[in-house]
Write a protein that binds this DNA or RNA. Structure first.
Length: 510
DNA sequence: CGCGCCCTGTGGGGCCAAAAT
DNA sequence: ATTTTGGCCCCACAGGGCGCG
């Protein structure tokens, strides 16, 4: 199976006329599941495995102008016309290379090339990318290099896994993906008769954690709901083997133990034995004071070992996914136990060290629930998470059994001072707007929201400059250099009736 | 048959590292 | 030396497709 041939299947998905399940199954039918070709096919379909290799649209655009007879602006025009960068590149290629016979590559070769791009960077990466754009066909080469920023197929890792799982007689496909977050390996296992994917959590094996639903009405507490604080930090899943830290993972199953050296000290202090998987939050502190969310980000993605910390990190754990290796009370996988049982076991496990456990209450009236929630807000916390006492641990699911309680967002009126163009399906439309208060203080940008997608044509961009928009937001961030930005902004609508924005003071006092 | 859920794909801020300028 | 770029963490929101009551 070469890339040109496989590209025909991808074209069908992009056109979106036929059943996606059928296309996926037909595309993979003749590929040996244990081969590298299969890995390449999965990468092209899901766009996940190579989403992080360091190739983005801006650098690919620039490279394309050196490989093909096209200027940057012409390329942007073609993107508007054909909907995305790979399609634009494919079109340029057809126009300019009608005579030369291009080398066809197999999906396995493409996979090796992508692995090479991951290992390299800078000029060497660029050199190989240039070579790859010479293959047949460059559209799908570009798609593979861009990962999630490639062609919008309307198919992602979940659809592909679901299709393959059903076809091969597995149910609970979402749980399978959560427990096997490496989508390539999972697809190999789903389609090979002699191997089964992981179906239970295990120490050392990453998984995608349970998530809380937002914008859900707080439940009527009848004794069946628990409330815990919501901390403004980073999610961590801590895996402990024989009482020692094995690994820790982020919400998206990336390794984070190197970024949080105090995790090892914490585990050494608290645990003597047993196998555990803890679910919790890493929270930034400094001199005993809670720090804004950005402080925790100084820890991630660091190359040098984090030894001299500018900030402290504290841990609060709110669930126990796995407990084993000590006694019959902890049988191993706890995900099918009730939430109240898991939290009970978590408390027992920590014994006298309860400061590491998120405080958990079980109010029986709405008034008491709100009292706890209000007390969390008074303590400067982000809000609360309300959990059903009988809920199992639902992997990778925004479950109504976990509900966020967060203060309603504030609204503010701001002036548009600049706009920028949207990407992909939003090409040729306004994608985002720069905002300012009446006193001329920039407060960041807004892009998401109802008006953002109904689409202001790019040609009409000048008409909305200086107009007033209403924007909802949760928090105003003040940076070290004195600049401000709204956190979680979204557009509520245009205020044609207004010609004045709100002042910075009004936002600060909200 | 309509509603709600799931999934994908838009958009935001700030932090990091490395490349580009 | 500074700016740009892409990836990571935290998100909000919209629309299509599909399943279920």
């Amino acid at each position: 199976m070469d890339l040109t041939e496989f590209g025909a299947h991808l074209e069908e998905l992009q056109a979106g006329e036929k059943s996606k399940d059928d296309v996926i199954l037909r595309a993979l039918r003749d590929i040996n599941p244990s081969s590298k070709h299969f890995s390449g096919a999965i990468a092209l379909l899901t766009r996940k495995p190579f989403d992080d290799i360091g190739v983005g649209k801006k650098s690919l655009r620039k490279l394309a102008t050196t490989c093909f007879d096209v200027t940057h602006d012409e390329l942007r025009d073609l993107e508007r016309e054909y909907g995305d960068l790979p399609s634009a590149i494919g079109h340029v290629d057809l126009k300019t290379n009608t005579l030369t016979l291009k080398r066809k590559i197999t999906l396995g070769e493409l996979y090796d090339d992508l692995e090479y791009l991951r290992r390299t960077s800078g000029p060497e990466q660029k050199r190989r990318m240039k070579e790859m754009l010479g293959y047949d066909s460059p559209k799908w080469v570009a798609h593979a290099m861009l990962g999630k920023k490639g062609v919008s197929l309307g198919v992602g890792e979940k659809s592909v896994v679901k299709t393959l799982a059903i076809e091969n007689g597995y149910d609970e496909h979402r749980k399978l993906l959560s427990l096997n977050p490496d989508v390539t390996t999972l697809c190999h296992k789903l389609t090979s008769p002699d191997t089964d994917p992981r179906s239970e959590p295990g120490v050392g094996h990453p998984f995608l954690p349970m998530l809380a639903k937002s914008k859900e009405v707080p439940p009527d507490p009848d004794g069946d709901w628990m409330i815990q604080p919501k901390y403004d930090g980073a999610r961590i899943l801590v895996h402990i083997k024989n009482g020692e830290l094995r690994r820790a993972f982020s919400r998206n199953a990336n390794r984070v133990d190197e970024s949080l050296p105090e995790l090892r000290e914490f585990v050494d202090d608290v645990f003597a034995t047993g196998d555990w998987i803890l679910d919790g939050e890493a929270i930034p502190y400094k001199d005993g004071e809670r720090q804004p969310f950005q402080a925790i980000m100084t820890r991630f993605g660091r190359q040098e070992a984090v030894d001299e910390q500018e900030i402290d990190v504290e841990f609060k754990f709110f669930d126990l996914v796995y407990g084993g290796g000590v006694c019959a009370t902890y049988p191993g996988d706890l995900s099918n136990e009730t939430a109240s049982r898991r939290i009970h076991l978590l408390r027992v496990l920590f014994g006298p060290e309860q400061e590491y456990v998120a405080p958990t209450y079980r109010p029986d009236t709405h008034e008491k629930l709100n009292e706890y929630y209000q007390s969390f807000l008074d303590d400067g916390l982000e809000g609360a998470v309300v959990k059903h006492v009988d809920a199992p641990y639902e992997f990778d699911r925004r479950s109504p059994n976990w509900r966020k309680m967060i203060p309603t967002k504030e609204n503010v009126e701001l002036r548009i001072t600049a706009v920028h163009e949207g990407e992909n399906s939003n090409a040729g439309k306004v994608g985002g707007m720069k905002l300012e208060t009446e006193d001329g203080v920039p407060v960041g940008h807004v892009g998401g929201g109802m008006e953002g997608h109904s689409g202001i044509p790019w040609e009409e961009r000048d008409d909305i400059i200086d107009k007033i928009v209403e924007v909802s937001w949760r928090e105003l961030q003040e940076n070290d250099d004195g600049t401000y930005a709204l956190r979680f902004p979204s557009l509520e609508g245009f205020r044609a009736d207004k010609d004045e924005a709100d002042s910075l003071d009004k936002i600060l006092s909200a």
